[in-house]
Design a protein around this nucleic acid. Sequence first.
DNA 1: CCGTATCCAAGGTGATACTG
DNA 2: CAGTATCACCTTGGATACGG
Lengths: 128, 128
Amino acid sequence: MQTADILNSHCLSRTVLRHLTDRWTPFIVTVLADATPHRFTVIKQRIQGISPKVLTETLRSMERDGLVDRQVTASIPPKVEYQLTPLGLSVVPPIEALRLWAEEHLEEVESHRAQYDARCAASADGAS
Amino acid sequence: MQTADILNSHCLSRTVLRHLTDRWTPFIVTVLADATPHRFTVIKQRIQGISPKVLTETLRSMERDGLVDRQVTASIPPKVEYQLTPLGLSVVPPIEALRLWAEEHLEEVESHRAQYDARCAASADGAS
DNA sequence: CCGTATCCAAGGTGATACTG
DNA sequence: CAGTATCACCTTGGATACGG
C-alpha cells in the first residue's frame, strides 16, 4: 500500500481525522476513557448541551469506525451500554492530550484573543 | 480561578478545542510544525484542496488565539510569512499524534466501516 | 430508557473572480 | 504574491416531540 498522507486531498485518512474532530467525538472519548461501559443517558448527562439526536449520530459513527462497542441488554426498561474498543482506547491519549491542552491553555488563549481584538479595534479607530 | 472543565457547557475551553479541531487547523499545524516561517502560497500548495479564503480565515483565527505569528515584509511583490509561536509549537505534539493516528489506523478504520456497512446491508435485506 | 422523526437554523465551506 | 469579495450551498448541529 501507499503510505497515508493527510495533506493529499485524496487520502482517506482525512475522513478518519474528520471523525475524530467531529464536534462531540472528543467529549465522548473523554467520558468513555476509563474503558468501562456507560449508558446512553449517563453519557448524555455528562456531556452538557448535547442533544440525543447528535449523541446517537456520533456514537453510531464511532461504532462504524470501530472505536465504540454497543451492547444491548434486552430488558424492560431497555439497557444499552457503550464502551471503547481496543482501537478506541488507542485514540484516548491523543484526544486527551488535545483536551488537556485546551483546558490548560484556556487563559493564555483568551488573553491573546483579547489583545488581538483590542489591536483590531485600535486599527479600526485609527483608520476611520 | 475555577479549573477548566470541557464537559461543562459554559466552559470556554470548548471554544479553544473547537478551533483546534477546525477543519483545516490540524493541516496548518502540520505544515508549520518545523517551526520555520512559511509563505501563504506554500502553505496553500502543501494543503491540497484548501481555498485561499478558508486558509486566510483559519490563519487569522490561529493568529488571534496566539498560535501563529504573521510577519509582513513590505516589498513588491508582497511577502507574508507565517510561523507557529511558542504557544503554537506546544500544540504540535497533540495534533501530530492525532494526525499520525489517523494515518496509521486508516486501514483498520476502513475495514471496520466495511464490516459495519455490510452488516447494515444484511439487516436491511433480512428486514425487507 | 433509548432512542427516532421531523423540522429548522446556522454557519462552515467551497468556487471563483478580482484587487492592492 | 497575498489575499478579499461574493454567492450559495449544504452539511452539521439544535429543539422538540414522539415511539418501541
